[in-house]
């Protein structure tokens, strides 16, 4: 896509500084096998497990027992009508939403709680924040910090959450902005950017912590149709970078393209899950079929 091509010419500046990257990872910008630029690579993908997730808001049951496994480095698309619990599920994975019952684990580490015998003891905020730095999140409404430039937005979390020195954080932020094709917009405030550009900054911001898991909550739903592709192409490139991706989306074609696993949710449960070919092209469940038909019609 043109968006990404613009950035290909500009080599990432400054040293990579990745703790886990070997010398050959630094030797060239692109991984020869996947064709993905090194800067895009977050941490090594982690395994996400959700077990028996229940969540209610007062008398409204949002999650009624969700079990889901996402293998390291794979892409899972979550489909389903509004109010089916997709977003809530996503938000429980980085503990923005606490579960009533059940648990979430990333690479076997339980998120938000300390397991003591049969008890899940809530972790102090500091530990939860540390866990969250392994999980990046991209929101439907972007939620860029409005009083900061694009560059400051991307550099903020490494500085405040990881204590990276300002200079280093800014250099890495510039590099990430170039990867999402916005190197020239580093000093622009979010309000001066288009929706698609804002969402690409938000993706760069999520990548700045080199997350092992990236959560996308309807990343293109707030965008004008002609801006959707520029964001999707960034996500598509990310999907080859080895980070584990969970994407709540209404873009069925996109889901079929990039997802290794598709999950269809309704009424707080996972109704159907499998490969894109199984769930999107040959849905077995009545509810899935109806939903996909309506999406295609609309």
């Amino acid at each position: 896509m043109s968006v990404l091509d613009t950035s290909t010419g500009s080599k990432p500046t400054g040293s990579d500084g990745r703790p886990d990257g070997g010398p050959d990872a630094r030797a060239e910008d692109r991984d020869p096998r996947t064709g993905t630029r090194a800067a895009l690579q977050g941490g090594k993908g982690a395994r996400v497990e959700v077990r028996g997730a229940h969540k209610s808001y007062w008398d409204l049951e949002v999650l009624r027992g969700v079990d889901l496994t996402v293998e390291p480095g794979t892409v899972t698309a979550v489909l389903g009508p509004s109010g089916s619990g997709k977003s809530t599920l996503l938000r429980t994975i980085n503990h923005l939403e606490a579960l009533d019952r059940g648990a979430v684990a990333i690479d076997g580490e339980i998120i938000g709680y300390d397991l003591r015998g049969d008890l899940l003891v809530e972790l102090p905020e500091k530990k939860v924040l540390a866990q969250r730095t392994r999980v990046g999140m991209v929101f439907q409404q972007f939620h860029l910090f409005g009083h900061m430039t694009a560059l400051q937005n991307v550099a903020e979390a490494p500085r405040r959450a990881l204590g990276v020195p300002k200079r280093e954080a800014l250099a890495r932020a510039q590099e990430l902005l170039e990867v999402v094709g916005l190197g020239a917009k580093a000093d622009a405030y979010p309000r001066r950017l288009s929706g698609g550009q804002q969402q690409r900054v938000a993706i760069a911001r999520a990548l700045a912590l080199r997350p092992q898991v990236l959560l996308f909550d309807e990343p293109t739903s707030a965008l004008d149709p002609e801006l959707v592709e520029e964001v999707l192409s960034v996500i598509r490139e990310l999907s080859r970078a080895g980070t584990t991706l969970l994407i709540v989306t209404h873009e069925v074609h996109f889901a079929r393209d990039v997802a290794d696993q598709v999950v269809f949710m309704d009424g707080g449960r996972i109704v159907e899950q499998g490969t894109p070919a199984q769930v999107i092209d040959a849905p077995r469940h009545e509810r899935t079929r109806g939903f996909l038909q309506r999406i295609h019609a609309g």
Binding site: N94, L96, G136, M137, F139, E156, L162
Partner: peptide, 26 residues
């Protein structure tokens, strides 16, 4: 906007910085 705090929490930014760097300036 509550989304600002949420985004900062999701990025693991500590509470003090969340208040002083993200929320208060806005």
């Amino acid at each position: 906007d509550a989304g600002q705090v949420e985004a900062a929490s999701a990025l693991g930014i500590p509470a003090r910085h969340r208040h002083l760097r993200i929320v208060l300036p806005q």
